[in-house]
């Protein structure tokens, strides 16, 4: 079970990242759970300063970039 966390305040890029992450997890066929972190204070607590950020199993793997689903597949 992978836990995928989207760190973003609700900007358009954050929504696209969420969709891309779901697509990546589905096409990889893994079991996953997605959560959104939207409070700025909580996002910063992950060490992320530029949104959107992406964390897998609680570890930040990307910040400030809108990754494609192909790129996310390599990270999860």
């Amino acid at each position: 079970m992978k836990k995928i966390t989207i760190l973003g305040t609700g900007c358009p890029k954050c929504k696209t990242l969420l969709a891309n992450a779901e697509q990546a997890a589905k096409s990889k066929g893994i079991e996953y759970e997605i959560e959104k972190v939207q409070e700025i204070a909580d996002i910063v607590a992950y060490g992320v300063m530029s949104t959107p950020g992406l964390a897998v199993d609680g570890k930040v793997v990307s910040s400030g970039k809108l990754l494609s689903s192909k790129e996310i597949e390599k990270l999860i």
Binding site: A41, V44, A45, Y46, G47, V48, V60, S63
Partner: peptide, 9 residues
């Protein structure tokens, strides 16, 4: 009060 990790990423 927010605990910010120094070497997060």
């Amino acid at each position: 009060q927010i605990n910010v990790p120094k070497d997060g990423i």
